[in-house]
Amino acid sequence: MAAKRILIIDDEADVREIAKVSLEITKNWEVTTAASGEEGAALAATYRPDAILLDVVMPKVDGLATLLKLGENTETRHIPVILLTATLRLATQQSFVAAGARAVLIKPFDPGLLGGQIEAVLGWQ
């Protein structure tokens, strides 16, 4: 399988870094990160990743707003998005589905398993 390109959008530096290192080590994927929703949405259009990991709770432009933004742009709307969150509530899950998210990854994740989980949920295996 060709190396995948992943964009991680999360305001927390530790989560960004661990996810990046984990995907690089276990899957040899190319990973780029953004620290805010605005930066992430802009980067997605030029970087054209194969998938986006998107944090739900962020200041200013949060995950859902970023998700909608990605959906509005024809350059990015086809990119599968996996949401990152420490809590999953049913009510919010519905709005994620409506906004087009493919999966929710519950934090904390296991850096050893993350890449395989992404492959499985996006059908990349």
Binding site: P80, L88, V97, A101, A103, P108, D110, Q117
Partner: peptide
């Protein structure tokens, strides 16, 4: 050993055509 439970939950949205 694996670090705790690591979960990814697929959302049952409209599937995208491949």
């Amino acid at each position: 050993a694996p670090l705790g439970e690591s979960r990814i939950v697929p959302l049952a949205g409209p599937p995208r055509p491949t």
